[in-house]
Nucleic acid binder design. Structure first.
Length: 949
RNA sequence: GCCGAUGUGGUGGAAUGGCAGACACGAUCGCCUCAAAAGCGAUUGCUCGCGAGGGCAUGUGGGUUCGACUCCCACCAUCGGCACCA
């Protein structure tokens, strides 16, 4: 070994050199090649919010690593990228800063393109798609039109958050505590006619995940979201004869219905309300309109409701029962009305108790005495009672037809013409209308004589006009006459639909557009689709579990049913590929979710603020002094700030001490040693002393405490990837994100731990570039290195396939440690070292593509490393000769014995019992039992012997 | 509230029911240096013991098992989603 003159590991310049070269060589352009197996790797596309943040790197670079690995394993890989570019933040920017949504969006996209390139990912930029470009949203509109023509889109009523002040609809996130977040004015719930997609048509199909490798929790969440329940629809009538349809999963309890409850929005409410109750009912309806659905259905809420004065007739026994309204019944679920059976339903029970309504048991459990319904509802099995002809029928606690009582009652309801068997879903149809400007137009027109017609295909896209006034009041499209006024096919004037589409619509089909983003004749190219579809692996955040991923599945099924895949399937057939992968209507075969990167915890400045008290909790400060952490001897800054003051918050002293937990401009919130929060207003011209920062200090330099929470600009806890890339290089940032976290879990950012991957890459560089390996080498050490290389080839591959990026890098670090020890001890020849280094670089290439390429070329191998195959695992070379037999006493290890791999049960037990640890533990006695656990040579699992005493 | 997940050293995290803490960060000590940083070497879950060697430890409390971070039951805490943020 010879130490040469050291060359420091280059970072940004070297990385940019390779990025340019790869781009020039079109290394990552992917094209159809029927002679090679394809792999479509997709990662969720970003919303162009301004800057790429750590979360994007965390989502995309591991996905890139896995895509690169698949490429080295021989797949023809497609790994595209684009922008989900319509949405609310662009409108907010327009209203708040007067910048046009389009300019804001495209400016951000341009910026983010550059940031995405710095990752060194293998994105095929020729396939980039941007959802707010007419070439893209033409097809979003086209899908709407096709769905409409297929009966999958319709007009219906839905509640919106209506701001009377702004004359506009607000998003849920814009409503805080029932008030508009911007103006603080009240927001009401209002019914509005809007466009829906009939996703419920596919409810049953969406419950099937056959052939999909999706995480179990996601499948469970989707199943619960769809919420299929079996039961019956039953028609009650008011005394006046108006029908009220209800859905129940418990028709066997119909005889226990002692009242009905309508949702406050139910259309019959006004009709049945009696004169005496009118005022109270109207007041209640108004109050309910101010509440969110979440509040209304919360079990913690006190059940509220009012009597309408009306009565209904129970069709099974002709009983007259009162009709109430209550906000725990939602108009959007079932029929918006329920029969209330307080004896056998928790919520009905709580309501009946609160308003003194009758509770009548109709299911009698076998082993519980009479009066069992006095303290809580009973929802278990039993015999029907108080139910006329059905008395004695067994209700076995099962749902639907599996319950004999329910089954018998359903049949009887049908015979009597009172009701029928029915299935209800919690899933609601997809409301796609948005009363916003920055979205894809809905290609529909309204004629003078009241017809609603789709825009002709030749007239698509309906282009979003650019010359609008964004004021935050009203809908800008309504005020745009050139947009609103159009002509019907018969030449007469007509009005355009001014609602635009939910942005989930744009993101429900983008992976098809990636196939051919320049295509003008159809949404995607048939030839590309026949080769690449479906997506093989989709990665993204688990927060999209239900909505985006259900919409994506719905879209694929709807596309299938309108024939959008017919040509593609024919082309597949012609190529000898089974088109069945498209007939299932499933867009992605495999799904994996990453966790979230959170902000790093940071303590705030510990300060002494001096000034004048204004009441007990507020101080006007003319001086704020930060305690220098370096001066804190015992590590407790709180003790230092309080020292020297008799009482820290002594009213006469005019001093507040403690940690800044929050700062808004010149208002500080300070947590005092006792834990009390004090407000300190730093007056203009106050002296601010921060020892760390030389010169004159200002209040804006004071740091407040940061909790571990989502990174966001407003919280001031954003870690900027660009700065880290400048400092360490993209390889290091990529590797750290993959090594420092469990990818599926995420976690708080830690700026210290990145040193681990810095040293890893430094060591690899040092070993290959700065040390000349000479000498003969030690055959035993060289054999051991070869063994470790092959074990690592296997484990890194397995771990990457399983998305265990942190474990894969740990394996690579371990291999580096072993190789470095061999080099340091001069136990390896140049040839053996070269072979090991070559394999190690090939394994590193997917993770750290730039340094791998640089060193690959440095050791004299042919460019590019990214066109090489992943090394082949040789079990013979990986095999161990000996292994450690673990001797245990009652499951706890007490000794270890070196034995041959594959040792048999008898030999292992004998060796274990002969060990020093076993003799000590047994102390001459005999074990009660001896258990042998065989080793697994292929998995490097050691054999064990458990001695039970 | 409902649905889903998570909980392991000072920190990030490893462990098909079979050696808990791999791989790292940090810390401590030593080497190098005029010094510092970097680098190199060693130690590092807690605890009793001079030592050999014990005991205790995976959110809490139970259970199953020769053996439980892992499986089951109950509870606590935290995170994601709840239909107009994306």
């Amino acid at each position: 070994m010879t130490i040469q003159e050291r060359t420091a590991r280059p970072k940004r310049a070297m990385e940019q050199k390779w990025q340019t070269r790869w781009e020039t060589d079109r290394l990552y352009r992917s094209s159809v090649d029927w002679n090679r197996p394809k792999h479509y790797a997709l990662t969720m596309l970003p919303y162009p919010s301004g800057d790429l943040h750590m979360g994007h790197w965390f989502a995309m670079t591991p996905s890139d690593t896995r895509a690169r690995y698949m490429r080295m394993k021989g797949f023809n890989v497609l790994f595209p990228m684009g922008f989900d570019a319509f949405g609310l933040p662009a409108e907010n920017a327009a209203v708040q800063r007067g910048i046009h949504p389009a300019r804001w969006t495209f400016g951000n996209i341009e910026r983010m393109r550059g940031q995405l390139r710095s990752m060194g990912a293998m994105f095929d930029w020729e396939r980039e798609a941007v959802s707010c470009e007419p070439g893209y949203y033409k097809w979003t509109e086209w899908f709407f039109k096709k769905f409409y023509e297929a009966g999958l889109a319709y007009r219906g009523e839905a509640m919106v958050n209506w701001s009377p002040t702004l004359q506009t609809v607000l998003a849920n996130e814009q409503v805080i505590d029932g008030k508009d977040e911007r103006t603080g004015q009240p927001v009401i719930q209002k019914m509005m006619t809007q466009w829906f997609f009939r996703i419920t048509h596919y409810a049953d199909e969406l419950l099937s995940f056959a052939g999909l490798d999706w995480p179990e929790p996601i499948r469970t969440m989707q199943t619960n979201w769809i919420g299929r329940s079996e039961g019956a629809r039953v028609i009650f009538h008011t005394e006046e004869g108006d029908p009220i349809e209800i859905f129940t999963t418990r028709p066997d309890t119909l005889w226990g219905a002692t009242f009905m409850v309508l949702s406050p929005e139910h259309p019959l409410v006004a009709r049945i309300t009696g004169k005496a109750q009118r005022e109270e009912v109207e007041e209640y309806v108004k109050t309910a309109a101010r509440k969110s659905e979440l509040d209304r259905t919360s079990e913690e809420q006190e059940k509220t409701g009012v009597f309408t004065g009306g009565y209904a007739i129970n069709p099974v026994n002709q009983e007259r029962i009162p009709i109430w309204i209550a906000d725990y019944v939602l108009i959007s679920y079932g029929t918006g009305a329920i029969m209330a059976v307080p004896a056998h339903d928790e919520r009905d029970f709580a309501f009946a108790r609160a308003y003194g309504l009758e509770i009548r048991p109709v299911i009698q459990p076998d082993d519980v005495p009479e009066g069992f319904c006095e303290t809580q509802a009973y929802s278990g099995a039993g015999r029907m009672v108080n139910s006329g002809r059905f008395n004695g029928a067994i209700s076995n606690g099962e749902k639907g037809r599996k319950n004999p009582a329910i089954s018998a009652v359903i049949d009887w309801l049908g015979e009597q013409g009172i009701g029928r068997e029915a299935i209800n879903y919690r899933l609601r149809d997809w409301l796609i209308s948005r009363q916003r400007y920055w979205g894809s137009p809905i290609p529909m027109i309204y004629t003078e004589d009241g017809n609603i017609l789709p825009v002709a295909e030749s007239d698509l896209p309906v282009v979003l006009p650019e010359d609008v006034q964004m004021t935050g009041v009203g809908n800008p499209l309504r005020q745009h006459e050139g947009f609103v006024n159009t002509t019907a096919p018969d030449g007469r004037p007509a009005l355009r639909e001014i609602d635009t589409m939910d942005t989930f619509m744009c993101s429900s089909w983008y992976w098809y557009r990636y196939l051919s983003p320049q295509e003008t004749a159809q949404p995607f190219s048939t030839e590309e689709a026949a080769y690449w579809l479906p997506v093989d692996v989709y990665t993204g955040g688990a927060e999209h579990a239900t909505m985006h991923l259900l919409y994506a599945r719905f879209f694929a099924k709807a596309m299938r049913d309108i024939g959008a895949f017919d040509a593609t399937m024919a082309a597949m057939q012609a190529r000898g590929r089974n088109p069945k992968v498209l007939t299932t209507g499933e867009p992605m075969l495999m799904l994996r979710n990453q966790g979230q990167i959170l902000g790093e915890e940071r303590s705030g400045h510990f300060v002494r603020a001096r000034g004048r008290w204004d009441g007990a909790n507020k101080l006007f400060a003319d001086e704020v002094e930060v305690i220098d952490p370096a001066e804190v001897a015992n590590g407790d800054p709180m003790a230092v700030v309080t020292s020297g003051f008799p009482t820290a918050e002594d009213a006469s002293s005019g001093v507040v001490t403690g940690e800044i937990v929050k700062r808004t401009e010149n208002l500080l919130t300070i947590a005092s040693p006792s834990g009390d929060l004090k407000t300190v207003e730093v007056i203009a011209g106050a002296r601010v002393i921060i020892p760390d920062i030389p010169g004159e200090n200002t209040v804006n330099q004071l740091k407040h405490h940061l909790e571990i929470q989502r990174m966001s600009k407003s919280k001031g806890n954003v870690v900027n990837p660009d700065e880290l890339v400048d400092l360490y290089g993209a390889d290091t940032v990529r590797a750290y994100l993959m090594f420092g976290f469990d990818w599926e879990k995420g976690g708080p950012w830690n700026s210290q731990n990145i040193q681990g991957v810095v040293r890893w890459l430094d060591d690899v560089w040092e070993m290959i570039v700065n040390i000349e390996v000479t000498g003969a080498g030690d055959p035993a050490v060289e054999r051991q290195i070869e063994r470790r290389v092959h074990q690592t080839i296997k484990s890194v591959g397995e771990k990457l396939e399983a998305f265990n990026f942190n474990k894969a890098i740990a394996e690579l670090m371990t291999l580096k440690n072993d190789l470095r020890a061999a080099v340091r001890d001069a136990k390896i020849s140049h040839g053996a070292f070269h072979e090991a280094a070559k394999n190690m670089l090939l394994m590193m290439a997917p993770f750290t593509p730039h340094i791998a390429e640089e060193l690959w070329v440095y050791i004299g191998e042919a460019y590019s490393i990214h066109q090489q195959a992943y090394p082949t695992y040789d079990p013979a070379k990986a095999a161990e000769e000996t292994t450690t037999l673990v001797v245990m006493k009652n499951g706890k290890p007490i000794d270890r014995v070196e034995v041959a791999v594959g040792i048999g049960e008898e030999d292992a037990k004998a060796a274990a019992l002969a060990s020093a640890g076993a003799r000590r533990a047994l102390d001459g006695g005999t074990p009660r039992r001896v258990v042998f656990i065989a080793g697994r040579g292929d998995l490097n699992v050691e054999p064990k012997v458990n001695i039970v005493v």
